[in-house]
């Protein structure tokens, strides 16, 4: 394998700011900011897990994971409510002696006055959402998991062909962008060209997208930079796509053995996820665009349970087995058997 995939550096965010978290989540998860002060731009979230601080409020703070997002559900709020005023003040003072990133109140619960005052005093932002705790915990975990997931940057063109994410890689100048352009012209959709950010989503899914800067710009040798979305319009682009097949383009090398049957599918591991790898030799006059479409359609066939190479293999094997069992009465060469045995007045 070329070093393009070997020496790749994995990127990971170390933290996100609470400000960013709020802006991304306020519409998605219906966040309402309860505290009056501006969000301190230096407050950060550095953990992808969330924490329900029930035990910390009750007084057990030895293992309090205070650097996580703190979620106050019904239990926490009801617990605070049943305390006497002085106890509630004491409990919350102890809680706010830890530098928590932010607090989320679920179920649109009423927030105790003391909590708001102490949060404002310590410059900790409190959000409120109508979602119940378990739903919110699921949403936020997924969001933070995505934010803190590992990413790699790959030099390639990434196109959605018939709904299959095909990523073309290969050395500079081999014609990745030209193939992408040809596919766009035939009605397929460009995700990104030249810089593909691949993110591992959950376990086993790779998502590819462009960067905020290069989105849908493309360089064509001899032409310069073009904007695919203005030239080909909205139908020609998309923002993200699952990475399904990696097509590595290389110059035709007559001494190299290429896959001829497709029975042994090769995979490549990106971020510990296996993606199908196809090494495609190219030479002038070879129509890579049509081959790319066939790669996508063949992938779909396999995905829906039909593997052409396997089917052909089975047909041949069945024939061989049948022949060896049959007693040899006839002498003609069965390899010349036509697919149609009798052209019965059908001369089309």
């Amino acid at each position: 394998m070329s070093h393009r995939f070997e020496n790749i550096k994995e990127l990971k965010k170390d933290f996100i700011s609470v400000d960013f978290f709020f802006n991304e989540c306020k519409e998605r998860f219906k966040f309402e900011k309860i505290t009056k002060h501006e969000i301190n731009s230096e407050t950060i979230i550095s953990e992808k897990d969330i924490h329900r601080p029930g035990l910390a409020l009750a007084g057990y703070v030895d293992l309090f994971t205070f650097n996580r997002v703190q979620v106050f559900g019904n239990t926490e709020i009801l617990y605070l409510k049943q305390l006497s005023e002085t106890e509630r003040q004491k409990t919350l003072e102890r809680f706010f002696s830890f530098k928590v990133p932010c607090i989320i109140i679920t179920n649109n619960n009423e927030v105790p006055e003391e909590l708001i005052l102490l949060a404002e005093k310590n410059e900790i932002t409190v959000f409120r959402t109508p979602y119940p705790t378990t739903r919110l915990a699921y949403f936020i975990s997924d969001f933070l998991d995505d934010q803190f997931s590992t990413q790699i940057v790959i030099h390639g063109s990434f196109v959605d062909v018939y709904g299959v994410g095909l990523m073309f890689t290969g050395k500079s100048g081999i014609g990745k962008s030209e193939i992408a352009l040809d596919l766009i012209e035939r009605g397929h959709r460009l995700v990104t060209d030249d810089v593909v950010i691949v993110t591992k989503k959950g376990e086993g899914v790779l998502m590819g997208s462009g960067t905020s800067l290069n989105e849908h710009f493309m360089e064509i040798r001899g032409l310069g930079i073009i904007d695919v979305s203005t030239i080909f319009g909205i139908r020609s682009i998309r923002y993200q796509k699952r990475v399904e097949v990696i097509v590595e383009l290389e110059d035709w090398n007559k001494d190299k053995a290429y896959d001829r049957t497709g029975l042994d599918s090769t995979t490549i591991s990106l971020l510990d996820v296996d993606a199908e790898l196809i090494k495609l030799p190219i030479f002038p006059g070879k129509n890579i665009t049509v081959i790319a479409e066939v790669i996508a359609l063949n992938y779909l066939c396999k995905h829906y349970g039909y593997n052409a190479a396997e089917a052909f293999k089975k047909k041949i094997n069945d024939k061989i087995n049948e022949k060896s069992l049959r007693n040899k009465k006839f002498t003609w060469n069965e390899n010349y058997e036509r697919s149609t045995e009798y052209f019965e007045h059908d001369f089309e």
Binding site: I8, K171, D194, I225
Partner: peptide, 24 residues
């Protein structure tokens, strides 16, 4: 030779104009 440029861990192919410009 292959040529790569990276900024804060974000690495692009130095033979790609879009890549190099994306570093901003």
């Amino acid at each position: 030779a292959d040529f790569f440029i990276s900024k804060n861990g974000f690495e692009v192919n130095g033979k790609s104009i879009i890549g190099v410009m994306t570093l901003a």
